Computed example of a mutant assay.
Amino acid sequence: MISTKILYKAVFKKNPVDDSHTFQPLPSPTGSYPYRLNLEVKSDNPRPQAMVFHMVGDTGGFKQPDLQKQIASQMAQQYLQAACPEERPAFLYHLGDLVYHYGEADQYEDQFLKPYESYPGPIYAIAGNHDTDVNPNSSEHYEPLEAFYTAFCNTCPATLHFGSGISRKSQVQPNVYWTMESPLATIIGLHTNVPKFGCIKKEQQDWFIKELKHAAKYSSEKAIIVCMHHAPYSADVNHGSSMPMVEFLETSFEAAGVKPDLIFSGHVHNYQRFTKQYPDGKTLPFVVAGAGGFDELHALADPEEPDYQTENELLEQVVLENYCDNKHGFLRIAIEKTPFKFTIKGEYYTLSGKNTENNDHEARLFDEFIVDLTGR
């Protein structure tokens, strides 16, 4: 019997369910337009040559809480064991779904605050669909994103009322979609709302187009990174690729005349790294990192199965470069800029196995990639 290896690729699910009614209205911004947050440089050097940060998505969950504790512990160890200050992550950027299955305040302590109490650095975030959704059976009324705003979009660092004995203060992001301006990168965070394949309205798209144009003015000095919860491209069985998110990005890139250097997402509970080749010669990586702790991982789909389609112009020139669908993990991103090179290096680390009793077992490097921006 001859066995053939499946050639996995990005897929669309056939006959997707229309759940647009789950869209939730957004709260008012806590900061002023255009919702930018300048990251302070904690260094004597006003123009640092390197910046390192962690990135992870979909860390919440309650069936196997040790999984998110292990992920948080491994990132904390990388922070504490950094060989020099330049190797120490400046922050953790969360790609959404801190809590499941709804964004209730009483879920934050066990699913996020306690597991990440040991993480030494600041944590920034975009909200996922579960963080945004409202539990229809809740005994107490609350607004969409109410707890997320308390934790991440406060006007000043404050003690979180839903975290007993927790030292971490609230973050001061200016809006649910916002831009982080750092010395080596402009990181644009989108909010993709609740529907299964995401939904972004015109007001946010107009903002995004302007932010891409603004970031392009500094592209010789800063990388342009886009973060969104719903994955544009995916090869998994549960979600597949998101046609609304792909169309949103492509129309925005065309309107702005700008493409970013890297796009990160979560939502799909695994790791996938795609590249898309554009007619202008640009190769754009799309990285899915949604295996941050929720117990259920999403396997990849056989593209020949009748429930999936791969023949679509939106999937042309999209290649799955690497994936991991059976282990939890996180990203370590390093940006380096010298007079001779300008690179973004990504490393994806996975937990070594399913032993949830040993939080100190070292994570293993699974994949690494480099985006070379030298000379632009």
Rank of each mutant, 00 (worst) to 15 (best):
186 T>C: 03
322 N>C: 13
63 K>M: 13
242 S>P: 01
376 R>G: 00
238 N>W: 07
288 V>M: 06
253 F>K: 04
358 N>K: 13
332 R>K: 12
156 C>V: 09
180 M>Y: 09
38 N>H: 15
339 P>I: 12
38 N>W: 13
252 S>K: 02
332 R>S: 06
11 V>T: 13
13 K>W: 01
72 A>H: 00
7 L>K: 09
17 V>T: 14
117 E>F: 02
165 G>F: 10
328 H>Y: 14
250 E>Q: 10
371 V>F: 07
120 P>D: 09
172 V>L: 04
236 D>F: 02
233 Y>R: 00
306 P>D: 12
37 L>N: 08
18 D>V: 03
217 K>T: 12
166 I>A: 07
19 D>Y: 05
113 L>D: 10
332 R>T: 11
253 F>C: 06
242 S>W: 04
19 D>I: 03
254 E>S: 05
160 L>S: 09
305 E>F: 14
367 D>L: 01
301 A>V: 03
174 P>E: 00
328 H>K: 02
373 L>W: 08
66 D>E: 15
144 P>R: 11
45 N>D: 11
214 H>C: 06
29 P>V: 12
137 N>M: 04
103 G>I: 08
332 R>V: 11
210 K>I: 03
368 E>A: 12
178 W>G: 05
316 E>K: 15
72 A>F: 00
323 Y>T: 07
307 D>R: 14
29 P>H: 10
330 F>S: 09
72 A>S: 00
200 I>P: 10
186 T>F: 00
197 F>E: 14
90 A>N: 03
370 I>R: 12
273 R>Q: 02
81 Q>P: 02
342 F>E: 05
1 M>G: 15
43 S>G: 12
322 N>V: 12
340 F>P: 01
66 D>W: 12
297 L>T: 07
100 Y>K: 00
357 E>G: 08
336 E>K: 08
126 I>E: 06
37 L>I: 05
206 D>K: 14
318 V>E: 06
12 F>N: 01
207 W>C: 04
6 I>C: 08
357 E>Q: 08
357 E>L: 11
312 N>Y: 00
50 A>Y: 07
77 Q>K: 15
10 A>E: 02
193 N>A: 03
337 K>N: 02
337 K>R: 11
258 V>Q: 12
230 H>P: 01
251 T>M: 07
155 T>L: 09
257 G>H: 13
290 G>C: 11
283 T>P: 01
187 I>G: 02
131 D>A: 04
242 S>R: 03
289 A>E: 10
311 E>R: 12
198 G>D: 02
330 F>G: 07
182 S>G: 12
254 E>M: 00
78 Q>E: 13
302 D>P: 09
102 Y>S: 13
240 G>I: 06
51 M>C: 14
91 F>D: 06
43 S>F: 11
314 L>Y: 13
184 L>P: 04
190 L>M: 15
365 L>G: 05
119 Y>I: 04
174 P>C: 04
228 M>N: 09
265 S>D: 03
360 D>H: 13
365 L>R: 03
346 G>R: 03
325 D>E: 14
227 C>G: 13
278 Y>W: 12
255 A>T: 14
335 I>N: 02
169 K>F: 01
180 M>W: 07
211 E>N: 05
176 V>D: 01
265 S>A: 09
168 R>D: 00
230 H>I: 06
